[in-house]
Amino acid sequence: MVRTGIIGVGKMGISHLAILGAHPDVSVVGVCDSSKMVTDAIGKYSPFPCYADYKKMLDEAKPDAVVVSVPTKYHAPMVRELLEKNIHVFSEKPFCLTPEEGSPLVDLARKNKLVNQVGYHNKFVGTFREVKRILESNLLGEIYHFTGEAYGPVVVKPKQDTWRSSAGEGGGCLMDYASHVIDLINYLLAPVSSVKASLLKSIHSKEVEDAVYALLELSNKVSGVLSVNWSDETHRKMSTSVTIMGKKGKIISDANELKVFFKDEAPAEYSKGWNVKYVTDLTDPVHFYLRGEEYSAQMDHFIAAVQGKIPNHLNNFESAWHTDQAIKLIKNAQH
């Protein structure tokens, strides 16, 4: 059993905790949150020991691994402390407020040989995994353009008062929402290396942007468009998609449906012309389901890596650092 603790049980944390609670290889040894109301409820009804102070939790519960799901501004100091105590870390996204904050943590995790993962769950979505597989077949020919998009109804009216509306704490559409799409592009194609232009627009928010539009160039010189808006209430929930243009084909994929066109040769299970696959055909079953297979799958991945069963390649700090770097480039490229 992996002795696991969690710091922060807000919207993502509570879901991680439920997934850990149901995991056959995990023993939840400590739950920490600054809200007394939340820890009292968990303490009263759940079998998990609760703490208000995470340092106390680390000392008393002695976890092997900790999930960090607190506002982004706390990630760097907490993750450092955990790594110094030789604890494996799963951190929520984005990794840090700046790439400068994250860089020494990438090194420290490597030096101390600790499993490190960040919660970019799209890499565990069946359709996007299949996009990666198709791209690796090279049958789309030379890739020359991409579009990465996400739309959803997070901020649909002026009033709000959480850390997500504060730029200094890691709020705003770029860090909180667009980071998912940037990370997906980094993974599927190559890391963003320069930003030709960007527009960060406030729609309802006063302090932060609600939409991000940017022209990106990747390290392999492929260029494309990023278009993300979290004030779009025509979507019921976050809807992320990628379009990838190659000289011999094209992919359009979201989390549910993958459409791919092959001009000439197609890989096995596909044919020339349009092909459509659904996430129902591309999803591996999980032991416990909450909100989407990808959330359980990413936690399974982390726990299996801690147990030494699989390598720690997917979604590690280093890959999340590339996303932080792209976020910085987008901020700096505003016109």
């Binding site: 809200s35 109301m37 901020v155 959480t162 929930k237």
Partner: peptide
């Protein structure tokens, strides 16, 4: 659920 989920993102659990 989405009514509450979106509200939690915007207002926090207590809010």
């Amino acid at each position: 659920a989405h009514k509450y989920a979106n509200a939690v993102t915007e207002l926090g659990i207590a809010g």
